[in-house]
């Protein structure tokens, strides 16, 4: 278990809120998505589709807010510190993270035993978090592309390009389906690493905004 303190500067309240929204949306989208894919019980198709759409808009808006906030909100720039920096810098990979990438890989593959010095997020973590908006947008794009009323929209050609890229209407569905598995895999790894790196302090902070002091302070 890590020994750094877990302070609210790492995850300001607004980001605790956006994280909650993401979690609820992703569970809702995955569940309704599975139901729409194969309705395993009767009577919920209209509801499932409505919720799927609603949550899609919520998660997209949430993503937009999160990105905008990253330019304004300051977050802790290191583990176990109350020193802050613009969140964007803490979110996006920085030049100095470059050499820590392989070291982090070594750590998680048991080729080294001391933890790697990192910013608020580790080098791998930054890459994974950079991928989340991309996969979210991918899901939204493929989702619209397989939504047939979109055929009559003026921007349909933008989606039609994707349909033909994935080899037709079935292809885009399968792409959307696999996209969901990517999200599920991300969530599994994300939750696992958060758990082994300090379940109580990390989860307490991100979900309940509860601080845990570090050993050396």
């Amino acid at each position: 278990m890590s020994h750094e303190g877990h302070y609210r500067e790492a995850h300001p309240l607004i980001f605790v809120v956006t994280h909650w929204i993401n979690l609820v949306c992703m569970i809702g989208l995955a569940f309704t998505g599975f139901y729409i894919h194969y309705p395993f019980f009767a009577g919920f198709m209209y509801g499932a589709r409505a919720i799927h759409f609603l949550l899609m808009f919520v998660i997209i808006i949430n993503l937009a807010c999160r990105i905008i906030l990253a330019f304004w909100v300051k977050t802790a720039n290191q583990l176990g510190t109350r020193e802050t920096d613009i969140d964007l810098k803490n979110w996006l990979p920085q030049k100095e993270n470059k050499y820590q990438f392989m070291e982090t890989v070594k750590y998680y593959t048991f080729f080294r035993n001391t933890r790697v010095i990192s910013a608020k997020y580790g080098a791998l973590q930054k890459i994974a978090y950079l991928a989340t908006p991309i996969i979210t947008l991918f899901m939204a794009y493929t989702g619209f592309a397989l939504y047939t009323p979109a055929h009559s929209w003026a921007i349909w050609p933008f989606f039609a390009a994707g349909v033909s890229f994935f080899g037709g209407a079935m292809g885009i569905r399968i792409a959307h389906y696999f996209g969901m598995w990517v999200v599920i895999l991300f969530t599994m790894v994300h939750a696992y690493l958060a758990a082994i790196d300090g379940f109580k302090p990390l989860w307490g902070l991100i979900f309940l905004w509860r601080e845990t002091p570090g050993d050396e302070h």
Partner: peptide, 23 residues
């Protein structure tokens, strides 16, 4: 498996952080 490996390596109890970046 990774979790079991981490436990075996004693990481669950906490891992010291390097004092200086390898690079």
């Amino acid at each position: 498996a990774h979790g079991l490996g981490s436990a075996a390596k004693g990481r669950v109890k906490g891992v010291p952080t390097e004092t200086q970046k390898v690079h």
